[in-house]
Every structure is written in structure tokens, then in C-alpha cells.
């Protein structure tokens, strides 16, 4: 069994935009699972968490499995409370993105998210023995390592998920770089990140597009795109393929990946259809090939 998933919205999208987005996903996108929840900044949630019950209902009516994702940085009381609330949820699976979440979830099944440091089979074995059912691997892992992890995962009876589309999360911090760019601090940010629904671009002083700021998170400028490589993953033992929401037609992106995974189209056609969506950033697949993450290799990589 292999399936597409939709990762959580990591940017600060407006509430009405989120509702519309998930309505279309529910009706049209060939994804099996949708991860829902604020992963980056605890200050944002009051804007849209009241809409979650309706969004969840809509997604589930559309046949999607909804998994609740938790915060990646957990320091303040507010953040600890948010995490505790998610860990107490009973009617949905949860995805843990900070070790703090592991303290109390051992008694129940849980997923381990891509912002946790799961780099080897021993760590996976330990967590699987304590109730982890599914691992979304860190984005920087190369195919060789993913292969070893997926082999072990089969023995442990757990799922393995790889991000195949969208910007790579490269770093998180306690400091908000969106606020800093606007000469504010995290506590008085005035939600300036809302102005950048696909993140705030950082260019080098020589004009190179380089990184993307999303609050406390630093992402790649490029979008990871493993449309060529994804067809090799099921035989490696990868069970799920994650699409990260960007400001592009995500329904169409999901359809292209679904067509490619079911071998209805070849790599060239898939690439051509993705190119038609005229995305605002170049593609990269370097991490998967064990090289510089920013690089884009063609189909015949040695």
C-alpha cells in the first residue's frame, strides 16, 4: 500500500483561505491522509482553530484520514499546553514533532513527524516499541539511508513517509525572523508573516535566490520535487509520500503525483505538467541523491 499525504500548512494563511483550500482538497485531491495543525508558531492558532471541526468534517466526508500535527518548537507555557491538548485527543491520530510530545503518548499509538531527528533504525526501533506507528523522515536523508530505514520499518511494522514536494525545512529557531526583518520581536510581531503566504524570500547580496523565511522556520527557496524518483520508492519500502502545501494548485500537484505513482504517466510527462503550473521557485532533489540539497539532478544520476 502506498499513498499520497498532504502535510500541514506551515505558512500563516488566512482562515478563509484555509477553509477553501481544504474544501478543494476534500473534494478533488487524490490524497489519502491530511495532516492538520499549526506546526510552526503557537501565536497563530487563535485565528483558525475554531474552524478545525468543520474542516475535519469536510475532509473526512471527502474520504480523507485526518492526522493532527503538533508544534515543532515547544518552550513556552502556551506551547506546552497546545502540545498537551493534542496528545489528549482521542478521536484522531496525532503526529509528534517535538520530543516533549513523547513524554505522555507512550500509552497510545502516535506518528513521528519530519521535524523529529529520526536518522537510524535503532532510534526507530526504540520509538516503535513505545507506540510509534509511522515515521515521516527528515528531509535531508538520502535515498540510501531511507532504503535502510524502510527495510527496518517493514520488520517493525511501521509506515515510512518521505516528502516528495514542497520547500525543505532547513532550520528552526527560538527567534522569529519574520519579526526581525520588520524590526519587531516575536512578542510584538503583529503577525507580519501573514503577508507572505509562500514565505519571505531571502536573497544573497549578489542577487541569488537562496532561502525562505517563515516565522521561526528557515526553508529552502527551491521546492523539493521527487516526481522522477517517487516511482522507485514503493519497492524500497516507502509507504507514504508527502506533499507540502505551497502557493500553487495543490490539487493538480496531487493528481500529477498520483498519476506518476500509478504509472499512468512517465517522468517526462509528469515534469511537463508540473512545469505548466508555473511555480515561483525552481525544483531541487539534491538531498535525495546525497548531494547539496539545493541541486536539481536529471533522471540519470549516477
Amino acid at each position: 500500500m502506498q499513498s499520497l499525504t498532504l502535510g500541514p500548512i506551515i505558512y500563516h494563511w488566512k482562515p478563509e483561505e484555509r477553509i477553501d483550500f481544504y474544501a478543494r482538497i476534500a473534494d478533488e485531491a487524490p490524497v489519502e491522509t491530511v495532516y492538520l495543525g499549526e506546526v510552526i508558531c503557537s501565536k497563530r492558532t487563535p485565528y483558525f482553530e475554531k474552524d478545525y471541526p468543520d474542516i475535519i468534517e469536510r475532509l473526512e466526508r471527502g474520504g480523507k484520514k485526518v492526522v493532527l500535527s503538533s508544534l515543532t518548537e515547544v518552550v513556552l507555557k502556551r506551547e506546552r499546553d497546545m502540545l498537551a491538548a493534542i496528545c489528549e485527543t482521542e478521536d484522531h491520530e496525532i503526529e509528534i514533532n517535538n520530543t516533549a510530545g513523547l513524554l505522555d503518548v507512550a500509552a497510545r499509538p502516535h506518528r513521528v513527524g519530519p521535524l523529529m531527528n529520526i536518522y537510524n533504525e535503532e532510534t526507530m526501533r526504540y520509538l516503535a516499541n513505545k507506540g510509534a506507528t509511522h515515521f515521516s523522515l527528515p528531509v535531508e536523508l538520502p535515498a540510501t539511508v531511507v532504503g535502510e530505514m524502510a527495510k527496518a520499518a517493514k520488520d517493525f511494522g511501521v509506515g515510512i513517509e518521505v516528502q516528495v514536494f514542497g520547500r525543505a525545512s532547513l532550520a528552526v529557531s527560538a527567534r522569529c525572523y519574520h519579526a526581525r526583518a520588520h524590526q519587531r520581536t516575536k512578542d510584538n510581531c503583529q503577525f507580519v508573516c501573514e503577508e507572505d503566504p509562500d514565505g519571505m524570500p531571502l536573497k544573497t547580496v549578489t542577487g541569488q535566490s537562496f532561502l525562505t523565511i517563515n516565522g521561526i522556520q528557515t526553508l529552502s527557496h527551491s521546492y523539493i520535487n521527487l516526481i522522477e524518483e517517487v516511482v522507485d520508492m514503493p519497492s524500497m519500502g516507502v509507504t507514504h509520500f508527502r506533499l507540502m502545501p505551497q502557493q500553487v494548485d495543490m490539487v493538480e500537484v496531487a493528481k500529477i503525483f498520483a498519476d506518476r505513482l500509478s504509472a499512468r504517466i512517465d517522468g517526462a510527462e509528469a515534469k511537463a505538467r508540473l512545469d505548466e503550473l508555473s511555480m515561483s521557485a525552481p525544483f531541487s532533489n539534491g538531498f535525495w541523491h546525497g548531494k547539496q540539497g539545493q541541486r536539481q539532478f536529471g533522471p540519470k544520476v549516477a
Partner: peptide, 21 residues
């Protein structure tokens, strides 16, 4: 250091060598 340690892949994105690995 400004990034959360153990959560930074900036060097790997640019050089192909990973801080964590």
C-alpha cells in the same frame, strides 16, 4: 548559534555535508 541545534540542515543544503550526520 541561532538555530535550534540538531535541527539545522543549512550547511547540507549548500555543501552536501550535514551538520547532524
Amino acid at each position: 548559534g541561532l538555530m535550534v541545534e540538531g535541527r539545522c540542515s543549512l550547511t547540507n543544503y549548500v555543501t552536501g555535508l550535514s551538520t547532524n550526520m
